[in-house]
């Protein structure tokens, strides 16, 4: 039970990197970006292919970030330069990436048996079990990513990206090219999502072309759960909330599975969860307006 909990938390941390990526688009830029459904398996695909070819995990993760970033730039260009609505631009990238991912992998699934993944290396170094290693790696990576994001969004450029999400008119009037800030945000977001994909593939022991299905919904679930439970007082608080949200999401999933829910129903369960969470403000409003009437 304890080891199950540890590995659940560990998996939550690996996915938290993806949730932080979704946070950048969904909350900071105020865009629902579906490209992540393609950039998550993209990261897995490139990482698995490179590692099977003998490259080290660090190279694989860096390559995942770079390719994910390129996917984000593609969505950004479609949206800003070709004026395609963000949602549609994301869908186009997502669909295109499906073919790209198959090209990279050459087949639909790459097993990582016998490959020196980040986790295997950590296990050999520390002598800890696999759940504990995943936890340590997950913690280190999430901490680095969170600290980086905290720093980045505190800089002048980061502040401009955040302002773009709140009010494009305002930040343009301050001399910032909002096309660039939007592209930058999408780049960063999809880069992180791909890194998460690379990590999850290593932890699962395989990359699969279908592993991106539902990424956006899982990301949203993590963001919303985190915000509701852990608050949004400051930017640092938001980042921590998202990470914890991802962990809680995994614990909830593990719990409902343990209670006997068929794994095939997971996506449906997650979608319903997110739909309810998204509708929360409306429910609250309805409830309070009813109170006023009576």
């Amino acid at each position: 039970m304890v080891s199950l909990t540890i590995s659940t938390i560990a998996i939550g941390l690996l996915w938290a990197v993806m949730a932080l990526g979704v946070y950048i688009t969904y909350r900071v830029l105020d865009i629902a970006d579906l490209s992540v459904e393609g950039s998550f398996p993209l990261g897995a695909a490139i990482a698995a292919s490179l590692m099977v070819a003998g490259y080290g995990p660090l190279t694989a993760i860096i390559a995942a970030f770079v390719l994910g970033a390129l996917a984000g730039i593609a969505t950004g260009l479609l949206h800003t330069k070709m004026k395609i609505p963000a949602l549609l631009a994301g869908i186009l990238t997502m669909i295109a990436l499906y073919s790209v991912n198959l090209r990279i992998m050459g087949k639909a699934n790459i097993p990582l048996l016998g490959v020196d993944t980040t986790f295997k290396i950590a296990r050999n170094l520390t002598g800890l079990n696999s759940g504990e290693c995943t936890l340590i790696v997950g913690f280190v990576v999430t901490a680095i990513v969170s600290l980086f994001l905290y720093w980045f969004f505190g800089t002048e450029i980061g502040a401009a990206v955040r302002a773009t999400g709140f009010n494009q008119q305002m930040i343009r009037a301050q001399g910032v090219n909002t096309d660039n800030t939007i592209i930058l945000g999408l780049l960063l977001s999809n880069g992180l999502v791909a890194v998460s994909g690379a990590l999850v593939a290593q932890s699962n022991g395989f990359a699969d072309v279908g592993m991106g299905v539902g990424t956006i919904v899982i990301g949203l679930a993590s963001v919303i759960i985190g915000e509701v439970l852990f608050g949004t007082r400051s930017f640092a608080n938001c980042l921590i909330s998202v990470v914890l949200g991802s962990v809680i999401y995994r614990i909830v999933i593990a719990a409902v599975l343990a209670m006997g829910m068929p794994p095939n129903d997971l996506k449906l369960f997650t979608a319903v969860l997110v739909a309810i969470a998204l509708a929360m403000p409306l429910f609250k409003q309805k409830l309070s307006s009813r109170k006023v009437v009576h």
Partner: peptide
């Protein structure tokens, strides 16, 4: 910083 290209210095 109106009209300046934003950099990597701390914003505030």
């Amino acid at each position: 910083r109106r009209g300046q290209t934003p950099g990597f210095s701390w914003s505030c």
